[in-house]
Design a protein around this nucleic acid. Structure first.
Lengths: 123, 123
DNA sequence: ATCAGTTAGTTTCAGATGGAAACCAGATGC
DNA sequence: GCATCTGGTTTCCATCTGAAACTAACTGAT
């Protein structure tokens, strides 16, 4: 068995990286790390996430063993999504990513303004 | 000024998260963290990355102040991409992500097989 | 002088993906 | 009968993606 290597297109690691290096995955696992949540609760928690993409993303996360889905025949239907142990290890890896974005927001915005002005000046 | 909050669609953090939580960004910054590289060198280093997307991704990374681009009028043209200090802090955050993918590849693949078999059985 | 090859890209086109909004099922409340 | 709650699926359109071809400027070989 070869060593896993994300730089090789043929390594399964590549598909997994594509799946986990995703905006919605970062935010959803961030929420689910704190507690089990229901479908519409997650939708309200992640502003701008459409039902279709939430449904698709949760399905992928479930397939990859990162969250579990439990449906209860109440009225109306109750569906609870919970993070798994595996998902929890990923959430711990993903949290610094969200924190980086929040912490370096101003530095990146400043860089963008500078870059755009230089482009403007060159044109 | 509001606190940055990636869960809000209106926060600039969201755009930044979308930019950095990206397969190609993870791999490119991973390479550039070790040393300065040229365009085709990066292309060869990241298997499966097309020239178009490499060009677009590098342009975004440059705009966000994460890498610098330096062109030298040699023959043929030499263009060198180097990581910035800001980029280096992000690369340090992104590396665990790639390592998670490589380290948990088998667990995820096993989860997928189990899930698909359960789906098969249910159908 | 012309053809092949190097560099770092841009362009083109078909197919996959994204989000907004509408729709659906099943049941309760009014 | 009609609206409302749940957790989705469907539809439509715009954007994004990747593969491949093309560009520009110059070198080296034939």
């Amino acid at each position: 068995m070869d060593q896993p290597d994300a730089f090789s297109a043929r390594c399964p690691t590549r598909q997994i990286l594509d799946r986990i290096a995703d905006k919605w995955t970062v935010l959803l696992l961030g929420l689910l790390a704190s507690r089990t949540m229901r479908f519409n609760e997650l939708r309200r928690g992640v502003d701008g996430l459409s039902q279709k993409v939430l449904s698709q993303t949760l399905k992928s996360l479930e397939r990859d063993g990162l969250v579990t889905r439990a449906a209860y025949p109440t009225v109306p239907v109750t569906v609870e999504y919970a993070i798994t142990d595996l998902g929890r290890t990923l959430a711990a890896t993903l949290e610094p990513l969200r924190l980086w974005a929040e912490g370096h927001m101003e530095a990146v915005e400043k860089a963008r303004i500078d870059f755009d002005q230089r482009q403007q000046a060159a044109a």
